[in-house]
């Protein structure tokens, strides 16, 4: 039996291994940070709702204020999904026979709720309060995006802890006057100057906490 000799090309193995050892961890870090980020896993969640309600039509084209339906948003932690009665205020008379409204009519007749699917979910150990934000200058669009342009609503922001803290630590540019709170087209960052943001911060006495217990109880 002849002696085994490594072929000449095996000299390349060492640099290749070094290169791989240097690249693969970087690649893995990139993969986790980019691929497993809430911006990938959460943003864009767009479930099919039981009723094909269009925010683009109602909030966009018709210009209904968010609060016409989500009535509790200024008073409570939870922004309520409207009662079927709210739909029927108009749809008793407008397109009542439309097949798209069948489930609304059914809910109105039986008194059973429409099983809307919740899109914006926080972990259940985080306690977000809508009223605390919308009554002190943080508008709907900051967290929900241009709902008035969405035919079917999807999640527009990661709603991750890092994302919350970004604003809690530097809220200025997200503040807007209360008159524009539900105006999704108003871009607070672009349309207000730094001094106007500062004035709003003083007016609303904004001094956000980043203690754990602010959100976690």
């Amino acid at each position: 039996m002849s002696r085994f000799l490594f072929p000449r090309w095996s000299n390349l193995l060492l640099p290749t291994i070094i290169l791989a050892a240097a690249t693969i961890p970087v690649y893995a870090i990139f993969f986790v940070a980019y691929g497993l980020s809430p911006k990938t896993l959460e943003v864009g969640y767009q479930p099919e709702q039981p009723v094909p309600y269009s925010h683009a039509l109602h909030a966009g084209e018709l210009g209904l204020d968010c609060r016409y339906c989500h009535t509790s948003v200024e008073k409570a932690a939870h922004a309520s999904v409207p009662a079927t009665q709210t739909c029927m205020n108009c749809h008793t008379h407008i397109r009542p026979e439309s097949p798209k409204l069948a489930k609304i009519k059914e809910s109105y007749a039986t008194g059973l709720p429409v099983p809307w699917i919740r899109i914006h979910k926080l972990p259940e150990f985080a306690y977000f309060n809508h009223s605390a934000h919308v009554s002190r200058g943080v508008g709907c669009v900051s967290c929900h995006g241009r709902i008035d342009k969405m035919e079917v609503v999807y999640q527009n922001e990661p709603l991750s802890m890092g994302w919350c803290l970004e604003c809690h630590r530097n809220p200025d540019k997200n503040l807007r006057p209360l008159s524009e709170i539900t105006n999704l087209a108003f871009d607070a960052t672009a349309e207000l100057s730094a001094s106007e943001h500062q004035a709003l911060k003083t007016k609303f006495d904004i001094n956000p906490n980043d203690n754990c217990s602010t959100c976690h109880r």
Binding site: T40, L41, E42, G44, Y45, Q46, H78, E124, F125
Partner: peptide, 30 residues
């Protein structure tokens, strides 16, 4: 693939890899 996922809304998103205590046996509004 990731870039494409980020750019397209989809009903099967909101993937939980670590559940932590995200879902708790309690009742929340509505």
């Amino acid at each position: 693939v990731i870039a494409r996922v980020r750019a397209t809304p989809d009903p099967n998103r909101a993937v939980h890899i670590f559940f932590d205590m995200d879902f708790q046996p309690k009742f929340r509004p509505q």
